[in-house]
């Protein structure tokens, strides 16, 4: 059972990688789902299980994303580690009873992330649409993650 628990701790890392790999070729209309889509699991885990998504994990995810997308290595890592820092201060004011508050803060967080990301890449409308898709898809992805997380956790 201990092995299963340790395996469970890699769940955030694996879900983020899964969403990056799956979302890489996905688009709605002419606009991308990434990078806003992969911010959803990161935000979720940073809020609900930050101990399962440590800094090295965020750093690794950032490097993986940059290497896959061909962008400057380390840029996403830096943004994600900063997200970890912000999550650390935001977490105390959140409560699981107020889903709309969590969703609203995700909107602000993803907007800030994409604005900084947009400084490096000339995304324009594509980034704005990605942000909108991220907001719309947040409840669905967060709901799936919460079921996966809590059911597996309850099993352990």
């Amino acid at each position: 059972m201990k092995i299963f628990l340790h395996t469970l701790k890699t769940l955030p890392f694996l879900t983020v990688l899964f969403i990056i790999l799956g979302g890489c070729s996905l688009r709605i209309g002419n606009y991308p789902l990434l990078p806003a889509l992969f911010l959803i699991p990161i935000y979720y885990w940073l809020i609900f299980r930050p101990d399962w998504l440590p800094l090295w994990s965020l750093f690794g995810i950032g490097i993986f994303y940059d290497a896959l997308m061909g962008s400057e290595l380390g840029f996403s890592s830096l943004l994600l580690v900063l997200s970890g820092l912000i999550g650390y201060y935001i977490r105390p004011i959140l409560s699981s009873q107020h889903f709309f508050l969590i969703w609203g803060i995700f909107c602000c967080y993803s907007l800030c992330y994409l604005m900084i990301y947009g400084l490096l890449f000339s995304g324009g409308w594509a980034l704005l649409f990605s942000w909108a898709y991220g907001i719309v898809l947040y409840p669905l992805v967060a709901w799936s993650l919460s079921h996966l997380h809590l059911r597996l956790q309850s099993y352990v």
Binding site: I47, F48, R49, P50, D51, R91, P92, L94, S95, S96, I102, S146, H147, H149, L150, R151, S154, Y155
Partner: peptide, 16 residues
């Protein structure tokens, strides 16, 4: 799935 509690499962923000 083996539920420990009968209550609805909800993620708890900031458990640490």
């Amino acid at each position: 799935i083996r539920h420990k509690k009968s209550a609805a499962l909800k993620p708890k923000a900031n458990p640490y």
